[in-house]
Design a protein around this nucleic acid. Structure first.
Length: 742
DNA sequence: ACGGGTTATACA
DNA sequence: TTGTATAAC
């Protein structure tokens, strides 16, 4: 449901840049002989020629449309060149397009705030750049102006739509123009320039809209395609919207738009104007109501987010009709394929962008042909994400089985042998979300744990990735190469690099990477000897939930016989204490009453430091954990650390979010509002702190230092997005000028 | 029971 | 918070 955002006071310059039939362009660049030919990109050639997912403009002339089959396209346009989407692991692999999209983003992000809206679209906030241009080199004063800018379409300028270059030049350079129009004119120049850079550096053409908000910019970018740009002056907004079908507006292309037509009899945006805000709220709720009232007037306060990287990664596949999966084995096979792709992409995101995903989610769709009246959906399930293909597969399969159990419900055993009866799986997808940036400058913290945790990486991998940190040298306190021995700058890897396309891997930084490769000895063992495949449904479900929850919690701390572990274990009680205070629920409660009765020593600080560490070791071994539990002394520690883990899950965003300036990076602002202010150095128990290796102490100090800065929003200050003061956002953005290095 | 595979967001 | 629904390309 769309939600209204208040509009900023001053006029903004927002651009929406949309690649023209992007996948086709990517293929044409790869195979230049396809240029100029009618081309479409198709996936799964086998059935009816496959489905078209992108159609070039030459083919569109012949009436070829997206969502046609390859066969139909051939019929409409016999000369059409059908290019297949690359296939990997038996499924469509979109990575070449993702990478190509990243190329484009890296160019467009050079000017102003940039939001990657999809694989082939970005929004830009060019307000500052336009204001600057207006102050320094206003279009009216320049003798020669760019050819590309002159090709702009300016809505309302020529009634008949014929855009004479002379009229456009006149409009762009009008000295008596409204300030807003002048800003848009500057925007047009900037965008024209950016589009030329994109063409030059990537060989891709794109179209763009330039307006005062995202909604209008988006609307405009589609009005003159391909390879053109359209400006929406303030004065032409009313006329533009008046006769525009509501369905053309973003967010109104689906059910909401249909409801406007059917329930309100509103077919154009202009017709929406008759309805009062109250009326719309009454019908669609406060949020959607005011949103509708606003868009009818061309008002949309949505900010350009300043995010160059995706917020989640997913891999999925459908198994339509006869292909529906009917055996556990086939489901497992496909889940494994999907997980491998996902894992690869996660690893790449970590390597290139230094980001870690925290949540793993499984989606599936299923049908129950025979019985069962209510067509319930297969429930999606999620759990903490552990890195490494084997772990991801393991966890995913568990999620699936948990979902399956719920889906089938109590309608009896539906497996006959290994074959399902009366139902099948028609789609599967795994995704990773809650991705946060790993702070750099914390190498030794990571190395510390990796040195300790033989189970985290195979020794092969340890040597591979940390050549100087052999397993026999576990302390990890020696200084690491490539960083400063004193006062390492605490700084998040920003989104200056955008994933995949240009993997800028600094060799010097290789040591700073978190080692999140596979644990070779990890194997899921059922708790209490239950066999997941034959346990009762309820119990199995619990098992799934429990192991899922616990899987994230063991982490580095259940490592026997090391200094680290010893030190940390000494504080186990504090952990539980803290968690108890917070009212965290543990899944093992009730099943393990013994641990609950433990007398607790109150110590507020130690937990935060541990929680903090916990975020940096995503590897654990269920087996090890299980084994440890059987040992009396270790059991308490392991369970207490589990509690830490579960606690931490509820505080997902606890990695400090500040950079050196104590300011948030743009993409982190909302997390920051919530959680980043939790860490206070005084809160940490000095005895715990002092036990840590010196370098870690140092890093932690540096890490936590920004907390001391005054004048920053406090947790609980209620800075909701739509209430955030412009000034604050602006100030934050400005002080982060470094965020968009040219 | 086929436009497929991804991403994002709001809401309960 | 997790899970669901809607929308977009």
């Amino acid at each position: 449901m769309p939600v209204a955002r208040p509009e900023s006071s001053g006029a903004r310059v927002i651009a929406h840049v949309d690649m023209d039939c992007f996948y086709v362009q990517v293929e044409q660049r790869k195979q230049p002989h396809l240029r100029g030919q009618p081309t479409a990109v198709v996936q799964y050639n086998s059935w009816k020629g496959g489905g078209l997912i992108a159609v070039g403009y030459e083919a569109r002339k012949d009436g070829v449309k997206r969502s046609m089959r390859g066969d139909e396209a051939k019929k409409a346009c016999p000369q059409i060149q059908l290019v297949q989407v690359p296939v990997a692991r038996g499924k469509a692999d979109l990575s070449t397009y993702r990478n190509a999209g990243s190329e484009v983003v890296s160019i467009l992000a050079r000017k102003g705030r940039c939001e990657r809206a999809s694989i082939d679209e970005v929004y830009l906030d060019l307000t500052d750049a336009a204001e600057a241009m207006l102050a320094e080199a206003p279009p009216e004063s320049s003798e020669r102006i760019d050819e590309e800018a002159l090709k702009s379409h300016v809505l309302g300028l020529n009634e008949d739509g014929s855009n004479l270059k002379e009229t456009v030049r006149e409009w762009l350079q009008r000295s008596e123009a409204d300030h807003r129009d002048k800003l848009l004119a500057c925007g047009a120049f900037i965008v024209a320039d950016l589009r030329m850079q994109v063409l030059k550096e990537t060989e891709f053409t794109c179209s763009a809209g330039i307006a005062h908000n995202k909604m209008l910019a988006k609307l405009a970018s589609g009005m003159n395609k391909p390879a053109q740009q359209t400006v929406v002056p303030f004065a032409s907004v009313e006329g533009l919207l008046e006769h525009l079908p509501v369905k053309k507006m973003k967010q109104l292309g689906g059910k909401l738009g249909s409801s406007l037509q059917i329930d309100l009899g509103v077919n154009t945006v202009g017709e929406l104007l008759q309805f009062s805000e109250d009326k719309l709220q009454e019908r669609y709720g406060v949020n959607t109501g005011t949103w509708l009232w606003n868009i009818a007037r061309g008002i949309s306060g949505e900010e350009v987010e300043g995010r160059l990287l995706p917020k989640s990664h997913g891999s999925g596949k459908t198994f339509p009709g006869p292909q529906a999966l009917k055996t556990i084995a086939s489901v497992e096979h496909w889940l494994n394929e999907l997980c491998e792709e996902l894992s690869e992409r996660l690893q790449s995101d970590l390597d290139v962008n230094k980001r870690i995903a925290h949540t793993l989610t499984l989606h599936a769709t299923a049908f129950k042909s025979s019985d069962s009246e209510s067509h319930r959906n297969f429930p999606s399930k999620s759990c903490p994400l552990r890195y490494g293909p084997t772990k991801i597969k393991e966890d995913t399969l568990n999620l699936f089985q948990a979902g399956l159990r719920e889906y089938i419900g109590s309608s009896g055993i539906c497996t006959h042998g290994s074959r399902y009866r009366g139902w099948g799986i028609t789609s599967l997808s795994v995704s990773a979300s809650k991705i946060v940036a790993v702070p750099s400058g914390t190498c030794s913290i990571m190395r510390y744990f990796h040195g300790q945790d033989q189970s985290c990486c195979s020794s092969e991998q340890v040597k591979d990735r940390f050549p100087e940190a052999a397993p026999s040298s576990p302390s990890g306190t020696e200084s690491y190469s490539g960083s400063h021995p004193t006062e390492p700058p605490i700084k998040f890897h920003e989104e200056a690099r955008i994933g995949g396309a240009m993997p800028i891997v600094d060799e010097n930084e290789i040591n700073t990477e978190v080692c999140m490769r596979e644990d070779t000895c990890a194997a899921l063992q059922p708790v209490d000897g239950q066999d997941p495949s034959c346990s009762s449904q309820g119990a199995h479900h619990e098992f799934i939930q429990e192991t899922s929850a616990l899987s994230s919690s063991v982490r580095a701390v259940v490592l026997p016989g090391t200094q680290c572990c010893t030190e940390l274990n000494q504080n186990e009680l504090h952990m539980e204490s803290q968690a108890e205070e917070t009212g965290t629920k543990y899944l093992w409660r009730g099943t393990r009453p013994r641990e609950q009765k433990r007398k607790l020593v109150k110590d507020k600080g130690s937990s935060s430091i541990l929680r903090l560490f916990q975020n940096f070791n995503n590897s654990s071994s269920q087996k090890r954990e299980h084994a440890t539990i059987t040992d009396e002394t270790q059991a308490s520690s392991s369970l207490n650390f589990q509690s830490m883990g579960t606690f931490s899950e509820l505080n997902e965003a606890e990695v400090p979010k500040e950079n050196l300036l104590g300011m948030p990076t743009l993409g982190q602002q909302d997390e920051l509002r919530r959680d980043a202010w939790d860490y206070k150095i005084d809160e940490i128990d000095p005895t715990v702190f002092n036990e840590l290796p010196p370098q870690i102490q140092q890093e932690l100090r540096a890490w936590l230092r920004p907390q001391k800065r005054a004048n920053l929003p406090k947790r609980g200050a209620k800075l909701y997005l739509n209430e955030t003061s412009e000034e604050l956002q602006l100030a934050q953005t400005r002080s982060l000028g470094l965020r968009f290095p040219d």
